[in-house]
Nucleic acid binder design. Structure first.
Length: 1082
RNA sequence: GGCCCCGUGGCGGAACGGCAGACGCAGCGGACUUAAAAUCCGCUGUCGCGCAAGCGGCGUGUGGGUUCGAGUCCCACCGGGGCCACCA
């Protein structure tokens, strides 16, 4: 069959030729080079812009179409900004250390360095194929020796500093030593005074202040990976995020980073950055600040310190709970049970341990409970979180508010690492305490109520104390009142609620804690109880009101003091309420009561106000091969790693040694000792050094740094990738990070306006794009390092990333067979006989949509898409799918739409037979000029806010317009060229080709983006819709400058409108100039 | 369980509180072809009336509210997704 496709039709084949030719040209001409200060071509007057992507792990599988979504977006944005005349830094590096890279190397039996280099090369090839305008000289990899030398250097900076709480910032450790020497600072009470300490003790004291330190901590040990993991790398099921292996808690001596010192700044500085709110929220939650108080309970001769956020509920505390690991337990545990101690408090010997039954002494019960708690996995603990366990330790503590003797328990629902590891339990106002109290028959004393409940108490005087305590029925009332009022059901509904409350069935045992809203509604469906919300009610609302002594609904509302009641589900716990006990707090709103109680406690010496954080220090060492070695040695003979010795800067880098067997020591045995693979490099691990006191033998630190180390600062190395004297040149750092985007150019500032709000305050990277999966890990660690570097004067901004944008995921269909196992999506086809049925090897499979990736076997590679349609079509499609921040399904059928668009653009100005441009030099007709300028204006606006889907739609519209306007005749150059330039950021290859075929020399990369003529955006006449009672009934054309009365007259005069107004009185005419008219008539 | 985000045609999605469904896909009809593909033109939320141009009703998950006017703002519910999950 003869192929009659014209030789210059824009097909995949033609696109492939165009694309590779221009990619070569771009490389050869270095068109993306962004000069640093002092480099050739640098112009201080030119505004700068730093655009950054979260760099990838170069996995062996290569890129799939989900990866470049964000990269394409930043590339378009960067290209657009270059065309506005900015000096744009856009580069792509590789996060190549860490578990995934090492795991891939293990799987394929190659050395990690070899496989990493291969993978990086493959990623680079794939990205180049997509036409990315990355500046290659800045594309560093975290595994480059010249890179990790500086990772080690930064580690030494952190190691060499301490956090001064008085100044709220990190300072060099030498200044701390100096303060001790001079006596301006004294050692903490627990430590020996400085002047009476020996050298070793002084060193230990100093070490205890460092931001990077060795400590025996209860770590997450993952034997299957042969390494410890950070809290952030462990899932809520207690398994490793990588590989899903079991993780065990175990004390080990490890490197830690004192990120907790920065908790407050990491929290408060979120205010100043332009980040998506959900991400900020996740960071806030992770940091987990809570204000509260330490309260001391007398407990025999000891004082037992608890932490609470609700000191105002102290009077409601009816028992005390310690974490099983709490150090005071051994001291407090009683020798024998008291006479009156119930059986259930004494623990239960488990089956297999001989006779089942309560333990003979508290000591035995405690021991058994601790052992059982340690055996229980996190998963088990969570699955039955409502079933509280614990044992009484035989001791009592005195409630400082009531003077009562409260029993002391240990229970694993109290965590050892948070607060003081001890709590006062207030079962009336805390769900967990309530669950525990019910389990153990402990008293429940309520001391505060939502406002509505206080009101309801007045109404329902019939309810006894007993009823309230046992069932916390007030939450039901609160639920229902909130429901009734917020639904604006009105007096009838309110009466319904009252009727329901009075007739509501007793709480049953299987619904022990509280009636939820759903159950309340269920109850309302019970015949006889209420008969439905709108149905027959047993009493009329007047009757109900009269019952309660009100004559009208308004009067009732007035009694409540406000028209809306805020109480909702859980209000009794959450605390928008009023305290009623103890006497000092009577009638105070909770916020006030908390403050008042805090003061009282402090005044009476029972404790003090404090702030606690959930954030823990960062576990910084791993027992793996493929990571940055620590620049740390120990004296030979110091077997327990007691005294780390930092290597001097000139000894950096500490290169990762070549070893044959780099596998981690994986095992199933949770009690096995970690054995870092670097221990096998014997030559490397032991060395002779002269650290100023003569040559001595030293041992190297054998752990490596975690995955996150390199990604904590790579964006700084992009700025100055080849610098051998510093991690980044100070002036260069200031230029790219500190100066405001668009600051120097007048018009540029205006252009950035819509985008700029986030850029005033913190400085840093102007736009950082990446997935939301890094909301806490990478983004928190990087902020921490950046702040340390800022405090030490190495960087000029307190925050690294001024504006953050999260792109969504690309989802793709995935298929499971009857066993629920995923099958190769590429080999599934739709059954032609019955659409909607999908077949894999002739067997039906079930379709679902999920994030594209290896695990769902639904990967589509950009290489395939490029081969079928070309890179420009691929880029355009990914941007056209929908809003960048949204997750959306990959639908290959839709790609032809954007491909056809490019084809039409091409054909509009190129002769498909000869390849010659077919444009005229004619002037544009008025209507076309207006359309063009409206498009320019719209596309610019869309580009500024990364709304590429709508920008493309506008370009398609423009092209459709041009196709119609110049059907059968050449398109004027005055339309063709702006169209090409607007297309250039989105589809750079075809734009370059068209530009050159239109007879223009050079690349479009540095051409100026078209500007809209404001005169072309205003219109002389406008068509306004005219509504009658909110429905469009007609249209009038009026002068754009027409005043309100003219528009009003025109609207009323309209024939159609008049027809609708016939026989009606016009009450009001609303005229929104330039928008519409609405006539209110009856 | 808590917090957060999202519900618009057959599909992806447009829409400063002001003409709902831009643009694309799919579908239908037509032109060009011996034919098909490609390409081009037109139609395409839904129901009713009409031969027709057209006219009208209903429509943004459900129920309320605010407003001259609600996809958009507020409340509740239903459904989907995400994050955290015994943090006192």
């Amino acid at each position: 069959m003869p192929d009659d496709t014209p030789p210059f039709r824009y097909t995949a084949a033609l696109a492939a030729g165009i694309e590779s030719r221009w990619q070569d040209r771009w490389d050869a001409d270095q068109v993306y080079r962004a000069p640093n200060p002092g480099e050739p071509g640098f112009d201080a007057a030119q505004p700068k812009l730093y655009v950054l992507d979260m760099f990838p792990y170069p996995s062996g599988a290569g890129l799939h179409v989900g990866h470049p979504l964000g990269y394409i977006a930043t590339d378009i944005f960067a290209r657009y900004q270059r065309m506005l005349g900015k000096n744009v830094l856009h580069a792509m590096g590789y996060d190549a250390f860490g578990l995934p890279a090492e795991q891939y190397a293990l799987d394929t039996g190659t050395h990690p360095r070899v496989s990493t280099e291969k993978n990086v090369a493959n990623f680079r090839r794939q990205l180049r194929r997509l036409g990315m305008g990355h500046e290659s000289r800045r594309g560093v990899s975290t595994t480059d020796v010249s890179f990790y030398k500086w990772t080690q250097w930064i580690f030494l900076q952190i190691y060499g500093s301490w956090f001064d709480p008085a100044q709220g910032r990190a300072r060099p450790i030498a200044e701390l030593v100096e303060e001790f020497e001079r006596g301006t600072r004294s050692a903490p009470p627990a430590a020996k005074p400085w002047d009476r300490s020996n050298a070793q003790e002084r060193a230990a004291l100093i070490d205890s202040y460092r931001l990077a330190y060795l400590a025996d901590v209860n770590v997450n040990w993952c034997p299957a990976l042969g390494t410890v993991l950070a809290n952030e790398e462990v899932t809520s099921e207690g398994r490793s995020e990588r590989g899903n292996h079991p993780v065990f808690k175990r004390p080990m001596r490890q490197w830690m980073m004192r990120i907790t010192a920065y908790a407050e700044r990491l929290l408060s500085d979120l205010e100043g950055v332009d980040w998506p709110e959900p991400i900020k929220l996740m960071q806030r939650n992770w940091i987990g600040r809570s204000e509260g108080a330490f309260i001391d309970f007398e407990c025999g001769k000891r004082r037992l310190r608890v932490f609470t956020t609700r000191p105002d509920t102290l009077a409601g505390a009816t028992y005390v709970v310690l974490a099983p690991e709490h150090p005071a337990v051994d001291e407090l545990v009683a020798a024998r049970w008291g006479e009156t101690v119930p059986e259930s408090w004494r623990g239960r010997a488990l089956e297999g341990g001989g006779a089942a039954g309560a333990f003979a002494t508290p000591g035995e019960a405690v021991e058994a409970y601790r052992a059982a708690a340690a055996r229980r996995s996190d998963l088990e603990r969570q699955s039955d979180a409502r079933d509280k366990t614990g044992v009484f330790i035989g001791a009592y503590a005195v409630n400082p508010s009531t003077g009562e003797r409260l029993p002391v328990f240990i229970a694993d629902y109290v965590l050892p690492g948070y607060g003081t590891g001890a709590i006062m339990a207030v079962p009336a106002h805390d769900q967990r305490d309530f669950d525990f109290a019910r389990q153990f028959g402990l008293p429940i004393r309520d001391v505060l109520y939502p406002r509505t409940v206080l009101a309801m108490r007045h109404f329902c005087g019939a309810a006894t104390e007993e009823e309230r305590r046992g069932e916390m029925w007030f939450t039901v009332l609160a639920d229902f009142l909130g429901y009734v009022t917020s639904n604006s059901i009105g007096p009838e509904g309110f009466a319904d609620a009252l009727a329901l409350i009075r007739s509501r069935p007793r709480r049953t045992e299987d619904d022990p804690t509280r009636l939820t809203l759903e159950t309340a509604q269920l109850v309302s469906d019970v015949p006889g109880a209420l008969g439905g919300r709108r149905g027959s009610v047993r009493v009329t609302w007047q009757e109900a009101l009269e019952d309660f002594g009100f004559s009208s609904f308004d009067e009732l509302c007035a009694w409540f003091g406000e028209r809306a009641f805020y109480a909702r589900t859980g209000a009794a716990f959450a605390g928008d309420g009023y305290a009623v006990a103890p006497a000092e707090l009577e009638g105070l709103a909770t916020g006030e009561a908390r403050r008042r109680m805090g003061t009282l406690i402090e005044e009476r010496g029972h404790g003090r106000a404090t702030v606690q954080y959930k954030l823990r220090d960062w576990l910084f060492s791993r027992q793996r091969y493929w990571g940055e070695p620590f620049p740390i040695v120990y004296e030979e003979g110091d077997a327990k790693n007691e005294r780390p010795i930092p290597l001097p800067e000139h000894m950096l880098p500490v290169e990762l040694p070549e070893i044959d067997d780099y596998r981690p020591l994986a095992t199933d045995d949770p009690s096995a000792a970690p054995r870092p693979p670097l221990g096998r490099a014997r030559e490397w691990a032991h060395l002779t050094l002269d650290l100023g006191n003569g040559p001595r033998r030293y041992r190297r630190e054998l752990n490596t740094m975690p995955q996150w180390a390199g990604s904590c600062w790579y964006y700084l190395r992009y700025l100055d990738p080849a610098n051998e004297r510093a991690f980044v040149d100070a002036q260069t750092e200031r230029y790219w990070m500190l100066s405001r985007r668009g600051g120097a150019g007048g018009s540029a500032a205006a252009e950035g306006e819509r985008f700029a709000p986030g850029l005033h305050h913190s400085g840093g990277v102007d736009l950082y794009v990446g997935g939301a999966e890094h909301a806490v890990l990478h983004l928190l660690y990087a902020r921490f390092w950046h702040k340390v570097l800022f405090d030490l004067g190495h960087v000029s901004t307190p925050e690294p990333f001024g504006k953050l944008f999260n792109q969504g995921y690309i989802q793709a269909p995935a298929y499971t067979d009857e066993r629920g196992v995923y099958v190769e999506a590429a080999r599934v086809s739709e059954d032609a006989a019955s659409p909607g049925t999908f077949l894999y090897e002739g067997r039906p499979v079930r379709r679902e949509f999920g994030k594209m990736g290896k695990s769902l076997k639904n990967v589509i590679t950009p290489d395939d898409v490029c081969a079928e349609y070309g890179a420009d079509s691929m880029r355009l499609y990914e941007m056209y799918m929908g809003p960048l921040e949204q997750s959306k399904p990959w639908n290959p059928r839709d790609i032809v739409g954007v491909h056809r668009f490019l084809q039409r653009v091409w054909r509009g100005m190129i002769d498909e037979e000869s390849g010659a441009a077919t444009v005229s030099e004619a002037e544009l007709p008025e209507e076309t000029r207006r359309t063009l300028h409206r498009t320019i204006e719209g596309v610019r606006r869309d580009f500024e806010v990364l709304s590429f889907n709508t920008a493309i739609a506008k370009l398609i519209e423009l092209n459709n317009h041009l196709g119609k306007a110049f059907a059968g005749q050449p398109m004027p150059r005055a339309a063709a060229e702006p169209l090409v330039l607007m297309l250039a950021p989105l589809a750079p290859h075809i734009a370059e080709e068209l530009w050159s075929r239109l007879g223009r020399a050079g690349s479009v990369v540095r051409e100026r983006f078209p500007e809209a003529d404001p005169a072309m955006l205003t219109q002389e006449t406008v068509e306004l819709p005219v509504q009658v009672a909110g429905k469009v009934r007609g249209r009038v054309v009026v002068a754009a400058s027409a005043d309100e009365s003219a528009v009003r007259a025109a609207a009323l005069a309209d024939e159609k409108v008049a027809a609708f107004l016939a026989g009606k009185t016009v009450h009001k005419v609303i005229v929104v100039p330039g928008r519409m008219v609405n006539i209110v008539a009856s």
